[in-house]
Design a protein around this nucleic acid. Sequence first.
DNA 1: TCCAATTAGTGGCATATGCCACCTTCGCCG
DNA 2: CGGCGAAGGTGGCATATGCCACTAATTGGA
Lengths: 154, 154
Amino acid sequence: MTESHGPGFSLCNNATLRRAGRSLGRFYDDMLAPSGLKGTQFGLLFQIDVSDEPTMGAIAEALIMDLSALGHTLKPLIRDGFVETFTDRDDRRVRRVRLTPEGKVKLEEAIKLWSMAQQRFEAVVGKERAAQLRAALDEIAALDFDTPTAAPSD
Amino acid sequence: MTESHGPGFSLCNNATLRRAGRSLGRFYDDMLAPSGLKGTQFGLLFQIDVSDEPTMGAIAEALIMDLSALGHTLKPLIRDGFVETFTDRDDRRVRRVRLTPEGKVKLEEAIKLWSMAQQRFEAVVGKERAAQLRAALDEIAALDFDTPTAAPSD
DNA sequence: TCCAATTAGTGGCATATGCCACCTTCGCCG
DNA sequence: CGGCGAAGGTGGCATATGCCACTAATTGGA
């Protein structure tokens, strides 16, 4: 098996994960399309909704996402009026985020579509397997290789 | 526990996958950094290398990636002289891709770094589990929900 | 109290991806 | 053999993400 890299075969954990991500992402994007939201945007709105006026940093941490990337991703949602930010009362450095009323409506709408996607996915993969897979992915996401590329002497 | 969405908890298969992808992507990117390549670029060079002067479409299909996205992603690699494209002899519509000598050298270099990343990853996750996970992800990537959003009466 | 180090975000730049519109080439058919 | 629809890419536009440099606000000392 020195080679024979069949269609979409790779030993690279990262490449395999990204590949699956593109594939699944398209599916969720397609299913959410009627709402006008992308899968990532849906996920972001959801995360904001289940949190209590979270700070940018808190969201970024929860989603394991770069803070600036979060800022960028948030922009279209703010522009479209689904989300708004405001300065924290006690610490003026901090900006908190919340859904606007329209954002809540949009999220409700999207959740219906998302549920269908979930159902279809789990109908094929199996509820059990899906849960196991999510658990495995959460575990991987939580791993902390501190990338001592050179020599982490201390 | 109707809620209590702990840090990074989500029932959404897509969100969980993306989240893990960001996390793992950073790890691989960090490990590959000395080569100047990103994880995606490495994966792309690798795919091209193991194929025989593949067509754009073939690569896109193998990576389950949009053809135009592939074209965009290829640009920096072409610009940096690691990859080159050429028109197919028999079908002038088709463009094939191959690594340049510098591209091959760069890939060799990157493979060393990648191997370390793989090793570290599998040292933590386990070789077995990693393989199982890749298999599961490949399976998901291969799924074909044809997105009958409305009603696939037939 | 005032400055240094830290913390939280923002903006710029670059890559990663997708969709859609458009252009070329091919292959097929009358 | 001329035109039409299909196949294969490219370019434009928009979002997704990351890193780095920089700004603003806090916090801890001296």
